[in-house]
Write a protein that binds this DNA or RNA. Structure first.
Length: 453
RNA sequence: GGCGACGUGGCGGAAUGGCUUACGCAGCGGCCUGCAAAGCCGUUUAUCCGAGUUCGAUUCUCGGCGUCGCCUCCA
């Protein structure tokens, strides 16, 4: 039973399932107007890990994650660059999924687009107006938070408190709104902007409506879990919830938010590393598994700093695990150790305590290495199987070096021959050659093992 | 101004009212090795400051200092 922190109740509680054996999850996806950044990467990795783990425990997971393909920022960019807005959204979406693929993030089971649900959004807005929870102004249709008694539930702040401070911010559409916190459901079109028809005038949907319509349509009322970055907690998720409350529909049963990526390195680092703020740069420069490893060693609700030192440490940690996989490649038929698996699940069920899970993995690797040193192959094989199973369920595949070309293997064999002939000059030369080709060379009595560095 | 987080060793980062204070990275010493690598073992003045509660606090309470987030752009 997975226990998860719930933002609405500010407590860790069991993730209750509406339908036994099935999990319904809605994840707020990207607005496609630019390249994905590290924050996107963290959110998708966190929920990919969640999803994989839930699947691992035998649950059938339906993960819906939207693409916001109509938005002010998209229109702005299209206007600035003088090209069709669809050109931007399709390209950005392709880049997005390409990056997610490199990160090893599984594609969501459903990827609805906002523009595919405009009719449903118009219908919902009509419904809200009919229920007197929304009203039409000169520039659009707004939701009246007066219709939502517990507005501020996710923000954990009442509306008056929110409005009492922060005075330097401009209240959008203040002239037209009945209450400063009311938000746009529909924005009337301006010349040159994309628009859809509606009973109140041509326009486009506000940001917060699509997720309500798509989650309720695809997952149904009272779905299990709604997730996204902590920055979406308010106003986005608050406003999604407000609409469902105003509609009289039960919404997400549990709210999950991941922490931020912070302090993207000072000026000192930027010289040597360049700007890694962009996820694509990170994927270019490092083993794509490294970011996942870094996040696994951090709790999902804690802030994480992504810097060269951090990523390097993760790369080194992965190297150790790969070395272990290579060392035990010949003992890959074991059955996973039940105790390790049980401890792993206990850690994960405790609000996705992946740092504890990783500590367990490293401990298990050490035990397996020790067993191997002692010649206890059976124990080592079983522990290896647990490590592979656990890491696999978190989306980390180890490289055991079985993708080495025959020419390289020949050099390794020659190295062994030279060593047994005690021709160390030749042996060292061969080792240097292999290393300069980018391979890690591990020479032992059992024979030389070569893997990619 | 309002609300809320957080402050752990050289770095990252968990956990906990007391038993040896995880784990990763880096460093140091040792074993192993022809030498290395990998591995194993050991190791390096860690819980922001002050007061309180307690037999005992890093953990609970209060205050201070500091960092950060949200308060209708944002994963």
């Amino acid at each position: 039973m997975l226990n998860l922190y719930d933002t609405a109740t500010k407590s860790v509680k069991p993730l209750a399932l509406r339908d036994p054996g099935k999990v319904s999850i809605y994840l707020c996806g990207p607005t496609v107007y630019g390249p994905p950044h590290l924050g996107h990467g963290r959110a998708t990795l966190v929920y990919d890990i969640l999803r994989r783990y839930l699947s691992y425990t035998g649950l059938q997971v339906r993960l819906v994650s939207n693409i916001t393909d109509i938005d002010d920022k998209i229109i702005d960019r299209a206007n600035n660059e003088g090209r069709p807005w669809q050109d931007i959204t399709t390209k950005c979406e392709n880049v997005w999924f390409e990056a997610m693929g490199k990160l090893g993030v599984l594609r969501p089971t459903d990827v609805p687009h906002a523009t595919e649900y405009v009719d449903q959004m118009v219908a919902m807005i009509g419904n809200l107006i009919a229920r007197d929870a929304a009203y039409v102004t000169g520039d659009g249709v707004y939701l009246s938070i007066a219709a939502v008694p517990d507005y501020g539930l996710l923000a954990h702040q009442n509306v008056d408190d929110m409005l009492s401070g922060g005075g330097d911010r401009e209240v959008f559409g203040a002239d037209n709104k009945r209450h400063p916190a009311d938000f746009a459901l529909w924005k009337f079109t301006k010349p040159g902007e994309p628009s859809w028809p509606s009973p109140w005038g041509d326009g486009r949907p506000g940001w917060h409506s699509e997720c309500v319509v798509m989650s309720l349509e695809l997952l149904g009322e009272g779905f299990d879990l709604h997730c996204g970055g902590a920055d979406l907690r308010f106003p986005h998720h608050e406003n999604e919830r407000a609409q469902s409350v105003a509609l009289g529909k039960s919404f997400a049963n549990h709210w999950m938010h991941n922490g931020f990526v912070v302090d993207l390195e000072g000026e000192k680092m930027s010289k040597s590393l360049g700007n890694v703020l962009n996820l694509l740069d990170l994927l270019d420069k490092y083993d794509p598994r490294a970011y996942r490893m870094l996040l696994l060693q951090t709790h999902y609700r804690s802030p994480v700093r992504v810097g060269q030192d951090n990523i390097d440490a993760s790369v080194s940690a992965l190297a150790g695990l790969d070395a272990f996989a290579a060392r035990t490649a010949g003992h890959a038929t074991g059955v996973a150790d039940a105790d390790v698996v049980q401890k792993f699940m206990a850690a994960m069920d405790n609000d996705l305590d992946t740092p504890a899970a990783m500590a367990l993995v490293f401990d298990t690797v050490r035990r397996a290495n020790t067993a191997l040193d002692a010649g206890d192959v059976d124990t080592a094989a079983s522990l290896r199987a647990s490590v592979v199973e656990v890491l696999g369920s978190l989306g980390i595949e180890l490289s055991s070096g079985d993708d080495i070309g025959s020419d390289i293997l020949e050099k390794a064999a020659a190295l062994d021959a030279a060593r047994s002939a005690k021709d160390f000059a030749v042996a060292d030369a061969l080792r240097n050659e292999l290393q300069s080709l980018g391979y890690v060379v591990e020479t032992s009595k059992e024979g030389t093992r070569v893997r990619r560095g």
